[in-house]
């Protein structure tokens, strides 16, 4: 293994993800604003300048039984999700223990989902139970044994969300696996040919079905509209991340942006056959990275449009939608067989 290239590749991919991820947040907001006939913020404001602003704010101690852990969750999760990006890079394919497989990637994705459950359990904002208001007084209704914070309810919803809404993206990830007959990222990429002679899985029938299902799963993974029940503004305000302020809020935005980039990058790698290669020794290598980054913009743009036109789905709608797209994914798997 060439350790110099390994380190350069890892650092470059990290920088790319940390730069473009937050830009996606701005693109999302801008597109939604234009659809809503507003000017909207400058593209760099929501994801870049606002993060710098949050980092420079006075430190804020959240109402949490374990504030340090609560604050540590976004940075730790950023590193964990970056591992997914690194594992799709050719420099990491040679790692032992079969880490560069889609099974390992799905396992790592679970960490991000569970992180929200922990986040919700650790937050106690003033907006619900601890609001200084005389609820439990003579004559008031007192029948429940637990008085729950918004964030606690958000954690409960995240558990349901993990159980139900994650199916589509996992099914979609395994469609290229079935087509390439291998769980290794390397095999899935090589199956689609070299960069100058590509035959993307996306342009096959099962690949196209998988891409649609992946897109729905992508929106669900991002907890973006319409799959934002666990963070529904209408009742839970923002759910688990509610108590993030100052630098922690900035970190949370970075996490969201990086997660968007990593999932988009995974899509480009699996369905276009263009992995995030860092090779500055040739024009082909540079072009491949540029093409990869350009294609990662596709899903955030589509998400922005969907989010602008989709109301929050409650579990009543979420179950059939999730199961429906899971069924379509299974159909795609059968086609791939």
């Amino acid at each position: 293994m060439d350790y110099v290239n390994f380190i350069i590749s890892t650092v470059v991919l990290t920088v790319v993800a940390l730069f473009f991820g937050p830009v996606f947040l701005g693109i999302e907001r801008k597109i939604q604003a234009r659809i809503q006939q507003r000017i909207g913020p400058p593209i760099l404001t929501p994801g870049t300048w606002s993060i710098l602003k949050f980092w420079n704010k006075k430190p804020f101690t959240p109402n949490s039984p374990m504030p340090s852990l609560y604050h540590a969750l976004p940075p730790v999760t950023i590193v964990v999700v970056l591992v997914i990006l690194w594992l799709t890079s050719p420099e990491w394919w040679g790692l032992p223990l079969s880490l560069a497989t889609l099974v390992a990637i799905v396992g790592i994705m679970k960490f991000e989902e569970v992180m929200y459950v922990v986040m919700g359990s650790l937050s106690r904002s003033i907006l619900s139970v601890t609001m200084p208001y005389g609820d439990v007084v003579k004559g008031a209704v007192t029948k429940a044994t637990i008085r729950r914070f918004f964030e606690g309810q958000s954690a409960v919803r995240f558990i349901k969300h993990i159980t139900i809404a994650s199916f589509p993206i996992y099914i979609a990830i395994f469609i290229p696996v079935v087509i390439a007959r291998s769980i290794f990222v390397q095999d899935v990429v090589l199956y689609q040919g070299s960069f100058l002679d590509l035959h993307p899985i996306l342009f096959t029938v099962p690949g196209f079905v998988g891409a649609i299902v992946y897109f729905v799963g992508y929106v669900a993974q991002l907890n973006d509209y319409p799959f934002t029940i666990a963070k529904a503004k209408g009742d839970l305000v923002e759910g688990a991340p509610l108590e993030y302020g100052a630098h922690a809020r900035g970190n949370y935005y970075i996490l969201r942006g990086v997660w968007m980039f990593v999932l988009s990058s995974l899509f480009v790698t699996l369905f276009f056959g263009i992995p995030p290669v860092v090779d500055f020794s040739s024009m082909v290598g540079v072009s491949q990275l540029v093409m990869h980054v350009l294609l990662t913009f596709m899903l955030p743009v589509l998400v922005s449009v969907l989010s602008a036109f989709g109301p929050i789905l409650t579990f009543k709608q979420l179950y059939p939608v999730s199961f429906g797209f899971t069924a379509i994914g299974v159909f795609g798997l059968l086609l791939a067989l």
Binding site: L127, S128, V129, M131, Y133, D135, K143, A144, T145, I146, R147, R148, F150, Q153, D235
Partner: peptide, 8 residues
């Protein structure tokens, strides 16, 4: 009821 969620 099992749980109370006060809002506002």
């Amino acid at each position: 009821a099992d749980v109370e969620i006060p809002v506002g």
